[in-house]
Design a protein around this nucleic acid. Structure first.
Lengths: 113, 113
DNA sequence: TATTCTGGTTACTATTGGGTAACTACTAAT
DNA sequence: ATTAGTAGTTACCCAATAGTAACCAGAATA
């Protein structure tokens, strides 16, 4: 969940960390990328996330304007998610994190599975 | 604390999030910046962090190679912290987050305190 | 002699995060 | 009549996180 103190901070950077500074949100944003994706797909692709937590995180990301939720009035239900302009603008930051990680984590990767 | 599953993931991005994807670490790295800073200063500057948690986070950041801890054999004790090359390389990412936040959070800031 | 200074550590406790399993709605297919 | 399928929600529970307060060393200062 979001940290209320962080989100209400007078410091913009702290507020930003309150918004995206947890373990699941960067993962979710990264998996979504530029595509439109359904709830069930996210649940299947992201390892070890429960539907409960996925629901919570998606709801917060929507509230914070990072993604859009499009629910079709069908049965069985269908819900699409896609990143908003703000969410898309966050993707380059995730790419920078990947580069950073790659640069300083040269060793290993040999016996990883 | 670090998430073991994330840190042992086969996905480098997930490992990166396991390393820096929590609320305190980006804050600490940002406060440190390019300077050398003492434990007590960090404790005083970072709002609402307890010494216990600060100690834990600093220890993990050191283990993950993001910062260096320099303890002087003095009394009363003196310990300096400063970012390593890896930690310094993370600063531009934090700057990008600030820009991103600034771009999409234009409104308000009027009655905030 | 008592206090201050620094960078912690420890024990205890409260709060939160997150996992599991069961359940829902409604239609279509078997 | 039953089952499958989707996107959740709900209740329950356990483990992890973080906060608080007390304590430590050992020299310097009052």
């Amino acid at each position: 969940m979001r940290d209320e103190n962080f989100c209400n901070s007078n410091c913009p950077f702290t507020r930003a960390i309150g918004t995206i500074g947890n373990k699941w949100k960067p993962i979710i944003i990264n998996v979504m990328g530029t595509r439109t994706i359904r709830f069930g797909q996210l649940d299947a692709i992201i390892p070890n996330i429960s539907r409960k937590v996925l629901t919570e995180q998606l709801k917060e990301l929507e509230e914070d304007g990072l993604l859009e939720r499009i629910a079709y009035k069908e049965l069985p239900p269908r819900v699409d998610y896609k990143l908003s302009e703000k969410g898309l603008a966050f993707l380059p930051i995730l790419e920078a994190i990947k580069k950073w990680q790659g640069k300083f984590e040269k060793i290993e990767t040999v016996n990883s599975n």
